[in-house]
Each structure stands twice: as C-alpha cells, then as structure tokens.
C-alpha cells in the first residue's frame, strides 16, 4: 500500500447524497480477478453514454476535473455493496481522498486498506469545501494527514479526526496482515481457550 502523508490536488464536487458503490463501479466490472485497471470504469454509468462516449456534464469529464485527486461528496458516500472494487476504481483513477459528512462503514474501512483517506467533516465545513471545489482546477486543496488538516485554495484550514491506528498505517503504508501476524500467539491462545469452552464452533 502507498503511504499517504500530504496531498495537494484538485478536488471535484459531487454533492449528490447516497452515492452508492454500484454507481462508483457497476457490477459488470467486478468480474476481474485483479485489483488494477478499474479507473477507466469509475462512475461508469454516470460518466459514459451507452455507446461509450463521454457524458460532458459529468464532473470528472469536465476539463477542470479530469485530474482530480480529491472528491468532496454528499452525505452517506459509498453506501451499499461491500465491493472493494469501489476504492480500487477510485485509486486507479487517481483519487486519494474523499471528504463527506458521512460514509458507509464498509466503504470507509476499505478506503484505509488501499491508501485512500476518507475524511468526515460537519455539514458547514463540507459546504465551504464544496464551494472551493466548485472553483475548478485552479483551486487546489491540501490534505495534511500528519497534522490532520484540510486547507482550501484560499488558505482556510479545517481540522479533522482520524483513528490513531488507521492514521499510523496510512502514514507508513503498513500491511495489516503483517501487523496482525505479530500477535499470532494471542490468536492461538484464544483458539485453545475457545476449543475448551465452545468446542462446537
């Protein structure tokens, strides 16, 4: 997993509420057995016509946002399916950070496993960031994970909360499985206890 320390990039505004993982990556693209290559189909049905041509009005098709690395989104972003293909598609497109008032739990977790930082902000802050994102490519937002701040193109800075363990893993690009396997003794002890207490499991 790539580290996430500090990011300065274009933020695309997507104010729609309840953007679900079927919108982020429709099911016909889940038939891959790889993690990569999904960026071209990110938001496929919102982004392309049936004939494959681009829908001009869709935000990521507009010249200003084609290289967006941040999305500022409406509430409950990433609801629905647990498909990790959603963060894989975002990452493959180049999105490293999503900001919203709320995220669906599973999507939120999946982001951290892939070096994407989801940031929860109160409505009034998301409103400010949304207007900043609406300024287009000249407006670049800065996300500083170490100091837990988002800074708009005109210098307004907002603090955000992040789980300490998740922050540590993201800053250092750490592999969860490796970290957990260091605790394999605890897992084995638990299993031995449970075999005695609940042998039917």
């Amino acid at each position: 997993m790539d580290k996430f320390e500090k990011l300065t990039g274009i933020a695309a505004p997507m104010p729609l509420v309840n953007i679900d993982t079927d919108m982020i990556i429709p099911k016909q693209f889940l038939k891959t057995i790889k993690r990569s290559g999904l960026g071209v189909n990110l938001f496929d049905e919102m982004r392309y016509n049936q004939d494959g041509s681009e829908i001009e009005s869709f935000v990521l098709n507009k010249p200003a946002y084609r290289n967006a690395e941040i999305i500022v989104a409406g509430e409950n972003f990433g609801c629905g399916s647990s498909r990790e293909h959603a963060p894989w598609a975002l990452l493959d497109f180049g999105i490293r950070c999503v900001i919203s008032t709320s995220f669906a739990d599973i999507f939120f977790n999946n982001c951290f496993k892939n070096g994407i930082l989801p940031i929860v902000m109160p409505q009034e802050v998301v409103d400010v960031l949304m207007s900043d994102a609406n300024k287009g490519a000249n407006a670049r937002m800065t996300i500083d994970l170490e100091n837990q701040t988002v800074t708009t193109s005109d210098g307004q800075s907002f603090a955000f909360e992040v789980d300490a363990f998740k922050k540590h893993c993201l800053l250092n690009g750490l592999d969860d499985i490796g970290l957990t396997l260091e605790k394999v003794a605890s897992i084995k002890t638990y299993e031995a206890d449970m075999n005695a207490q609940r042998p039917w499991v």
């Binding site: 993690r35 647990s82 498909r83 739990d105 999946n110 396997l181």
Partner: peptide, 23 residues
C-alpha cells in the same frame, strides 16, 4: 455477522481475525 472488503477477506483468511473497533 457483517460484510467485509476484499483486503479484510485476505486478513481473515490469513489470521482468522479482523482489526475492529466496537460499534
């Protein structure tokens, strides 16, 4: 019982555990 992403599927396959905070 709950859903998990593919990274967590791999984590459970490898360790039979999930890294979690209580809801």
């Amino acid at each position: 019982a709950h859903g998990i992403g593919t990274s967590e599927v791999e984590h459970v396959l490898a360790t039979q555990t999930l890294i979690q905070r209580k809801g």
